[in-house]
């Protein structure tokens, strides 16, 4: 079990200035004290709603945003303190695929040029690079006739395949997938998910998969981290999380998406009340307490710590032990 990516006590605060001349400064705690490690070869999922900080984590690892504090290690390299050159070499070992396929490719150049660019940057001779582009296009089932087109001439699925091709063209070990299928139609989503599985097997890739779509995360991921308002609230292997979720928020998330089966209509429901509060002013104590039906006085004042409940099942909740949430799963 070798950790490929290690985040230790990572915090990311964004500053919002308002008031006259930006005198008043408020902090948005996008990621607040998150530690996790991604093991080589696994698919690590991060789930959460908007504002949970999951996308910020995706950008912290290749240092597209700088952390406020904490450390990020990729294959032993300290990403936060790496020099320009070290960082560049580390980034070549990662790929990243974004949510919106339509704006993931430079609209002014052909698809082939977009896929070829990383090779060019890595200093590969043009001819070799062109061959590699063809090869990788075939890998992602992108017809060669598509290569000479511009991104807007492609369907959403093709655009996303092209983005994946660009992400893996340098043969990275690690690919960050930031909601790669949420903008796609169901029938196309299945193609892309299968493609991701095939590529992983073939090149023994490590994936970080970020999504709000629980069934998709369950299908793809080995371990899942649940985030809420910048905090990691639970982390477990997929099977364990589905069998016995410990945190009420995880349970709510798992049960939120209605299953595509009318017979499940009378299933037990667990619906959180209210909306996620503002990130600039998160609640004291446990951040979920205003929405949590199990909240007690302690939850309002004391922030729960992330504890290990056996074989790497982490959760941060005061009520674990009092509650049995493993029903209806």
């Amino acid at each position: 079990m070798e950790a490929l990516v290690e985040l230790e006590r990572v915090k990311k605060h964004f500053v919002i200035r308002d008031g006259i001349l930006g005198r008043r400064r408020r902090f948005v705690h996008a990621v607040d004290d998150v530690s996790l490690s991604i093991v080589r070869g696994e698919t690590f999922g991060i789930v959460g709603e908007s504002g949970s900080g999951k996308t910020t984590i995706a950008r912290i690892i290749p240092r597209l945003v700088n952390v406020t504090s904490g450390s990020v290690k990729f294959s032993g390299i300290d990403i936060c303190r790496a020099s320009g050159r070290e960082l560049m070499l580390a980034r070549r070992r990662m790929g990243i695929v974004f949510q919106d396929p339509a704006s993931s490719l430079n609209p002014r150049v052909t698809v082939a040029a977009s896929i070829q660019r990383p090779l060019q940057l890595a200093g590969l001779p043009a001819k070799e690079a062109r061959d590699r582009v063809r090869e990788v296009a075939e890998l992602v089932n992108l017809g060669t006739e598509v290569l000479d087109k511009f991104p807007h001439e492609l369907s959403g699925g093709q655009q996303q395949r092209a983005s994946i091709a660009r992400a893996i063209v340098l043969r990275p070990e690690f690919v960050i997938l930031d909601e790669p299928t949420s903008a796609l139609d169901v029938s196309v989503q299945a193609q892309v998910l299968n493609l991701l599985l095939d590529l992983q097997q073939r090149f023994s890739l490590t994936y970080l998969f970020i999504s709000h779509n629980l069934p998709v995360v369950r299908y793809l991921c080995d371990r899942i981290a649940v985030m809420y308002l910048g905090k990691l609230v639970e982390l477990a292997s997929t099977g364990v999380l589905y069998r016995e979720p410990l945190h009420p928020y995880s349970l709510a998330l798992l049960m939120a998406a209605p299953p595509p089966d009318p017979k499940m209509r009378n299933r037990r429901r667990f619906i959180l009340t209210g909306d996620p509060p503002s990130l600039t002013n998160p609640p004291q104590g446990c951040r979920l307490h205003p929405r949590c039906q199990f909240a007690v006085e302690r939850c309002r004042v004391e922030e729960p710590e992330l504890r290990d409940y056996g074989s790497g099942h982490l959760a941060a909740c005061h009520r674990i032990g009092d509650l049995d949430l493993g029903f209806a799963m």
């Binding site: 369907s155 029938s187 998709v216 299908y219 997929t238």
Partner: peptide, 21 residues
């Protein structure tokens, strides 16, 4: 209906519809 993920990956592979809309 078969294209929707309903369980872990090792249980069954998703049926995908070739081509696009």
């Amino acid at each position: 209906l078969k294209a929707l993920p309903r369980g872990p990956k090792n249980e069954l592979r998703l049926e995908s519809i070739p081509g696009g809309v």
